[in-house]
Design a protein around this nucleic acid. Structure first.
Lengths: 205, 205
DNA sequence: TTGTTTACTAAACACTGTTCATTAAGTTTG
DNA sequence: CAAACTTAATGAACAGTGTTTAGTAAACAA
């Protein structure tokens, strides 16, 4: 009998319905406007129903966090076509920064907010997405080391240094700590700083 | 008559009383536990009273944000004694990272949270603290350029690159995005990455 | 002493995340 | 088919949040 399969399917559909409503509200109105009651209104169910499909709000945000990683990794696809590892690395950096600027809420959710991480420390799969994204970077850095364009022998260390530098730029911007340089030309400032960083690692890393 | 002066003084004392209670709760129990009612309980006044001294919660957090900057800048004092600009720069980086690790809540407030920035965009003095701290860094970078230890001619760009790199490391750690490397040896990982960054800019910047 | 200004607060408003007893519908069994 | 059971959904409540406002009591000025 396919009833249990149908139930399973309906359950997944409901989880998706909730998640999509949450994403819609999140992208339209920002983090603060995503309340359980707002989501419930959006999908025309009672607030309590959401708790039948997600343990709590953090778990819901973790699910959103997962879809955001999938989206970002998809956007990295074009770098596969690039031959030179260093060119790959540079393009990945650009795509990363572009993702951060074009999807500020998603980037925030992925790398800054504590909501998706809180109270989920018990789960085994919390770091799967982060690991997956980081290992893409690390592999490219390893290729740079193998071809001699990066001298430092430890790919993990080098990758972490690169990630944190680019993240720092994105995070300072998204949390409005670069406004003192004038909100209007922050984008060019970030681009210039990114280029300076590229030149520095080309020469020094 | 000194009544208006005394009133002024009493007003400042009350602002300080509220601020100190807020800081106490903030450092003891974290951001979430600092509610207007908690602060009111702590100082044995009604919640509404706080609104006679601070416009809203964001303004209160901005005041806390200011004291945090003062504390950090005080901790930078020892670098004045260092002769070589590059040594100064390195020590400043170390002190910056140490401040972030030893005062995670304060660092978060200063460079990550949006609360102290939100709705205060109108005020002229929001960026004073950030500017002051950044210009300390920029001056040291300028000294490095003048003595030839840094080749890149633009001190502002170089300083921003350095800041964002170190901030990236601190921010990823504080928002628990480095836990995938194993929570226990994050500190050494950050130190290693910081050293790699130093070597890179020494050679490449 | 009267009038006015100031400091303070109780109570309310509109929210928030979350839980739980109850209802209604779907499914299985006799 | 009807009775028993299981499951999905909810209304209402709890305990909390930031913030506003009307009203009171004390301090001050005339």
């Amino acid at each position: 009998m396919g009833i249990v399969e149908r139930k399973e399917r309906e359950r997944e559909e409901m989880r998706k319905l909730i998640l999509d409503a949450a994403r819609k509200l999140f992208l339209e109105n920002g983090f603060d406007k995503v309340s359980i009651r707002n989501i419930a209104d959006e999908i025309e169910y009672s607030p309590a129903t959401i708790y039948l499909y997600y343990k709590d709000k953090n778990e819901l945000f973790f699910a959103l966090h997962q879809t955001a990683f999938t989206k970002m990794i998809e956007e990295f696809a074009p770098i596969e076509q690039i031959e030179q590892p260093m060119d790959k690395l540079i393009e990945m950096g650009r795509l990363y920064l572009r993702f951060a600027f074009e999807n500020p809420e998603l980037y925030d959710l992925m790398f800054i907010m504590t909501a998706p991480i809180d109270a989920l420390e018990c789960r085994e799969d919390i770091w799967d997405d982060g690991d997956r994204a980081f290992s893409i970077l690390q592999q490219i850095v390893q290729a740079c080391i193998d071809t001699g364009t990066i001298k430092h022998p430890d790919a993990e260390q080098a990758a972490l240094m690169i990630w944190s530098s680019v993240h720092g730029l994105a995070a300072l911007h998204l949390r409005r700590r670069l406004s003192m340089f004038g909100e209007e030309h922050v984008k060019t400032l970030v681009d210039e700083t990114f280029n300076l960083f590229l030149n520095t690692i080309k020469k020094g890393l």
